[in-house]
Computed example of a mutant assay.
Amino acid sequence: MFKKVVVAEDLDSITVAVNQTLQSLKVQEIQHAKYCDDALLKIKKALLDNQPYDLLITDLSFKADHRKVKMYTGEDLIEAIKKIQPNIKVVVYSIEDKSFRIKSLFENLNIDAYINKGRKSIGELKTAIKTITKEDHKYISPQMAHLLQDKVIHEIDNFDIQLIKQLSLGTSLEEMETIFKDLEIKPNSKSAIEKRLGKLKDYFKAKNTVHLIAIAKDLGIA
Rank of each mutant, 00 (worst) to 15 (best):
I132P: 01
E184C: 05
G123M: 08
N108A: 02
D182F: 09
S94V: 14
D54N: 06
N50Y: 15
H154M: 04
Y35P: 01
Y114K: 01
D150T: 08
I95K: 05
I115Y: 03
L148N: 10
G198R: 11
N158Q: 15
L173P: 04
A222K: 00
D136M: 09
D160M: 13
D157L: 03
Q31A: 10
T21I: 13
K134C: 15
F159L: 07
I213A: 13
Y72W: 01
G170M: 15
I140K: 12
Q143Y: 07
T131C: 01
I84P: 06
K201A: 06
G74V: 02
N208R: 01
I161D: 07
I179P: 00
L173M: 10
D202P: 03
D12A: 11
D202R: 05
Q166F: 10
Q85D: 14
D202K: 05
E175D: 06
I129S: 00
T127S: 06
A222T: 02
L77H: 02
L48S: 15
K89V: 02
K217G: 03
F2Q: 03
K70F: 08
D136I: 06
T131M: 01
K138H: 11
V7K: 04
M144I: 14
T15Q: 05
F180S: 03
I111K: 00
I78Q: 01
D59A: 09
K83N: 04
A214W: 13
D37E: 09
N50V: 07
D136S: 08
E155P: 00
E124D: 14
N208Q: 02
S191Y: 12
Q20D: 10
K151D: 14
P86M: 12
K195R: 15
S141D: 09
K89W: 02
D54V: 06
L41W: 12
K151A: 13
K44Q: 04
I57K: 05
E135G: 04
E135C: 07
S99W: 05
V90C: 02
L25V: 04
M144W: 10
F159D: 10
L147K: 13
A192P: 01
L55T: 03
K205L: 11
K63R: 13
K217M: 10
L47T: 09
C36M: 08
Y35Q: 09
H211V: 08
Q23F: 13
K126N: 08
Q85N: 11
I161A: 06
T171P: 08
D65E: 11
I111A: 00
A39K: 08
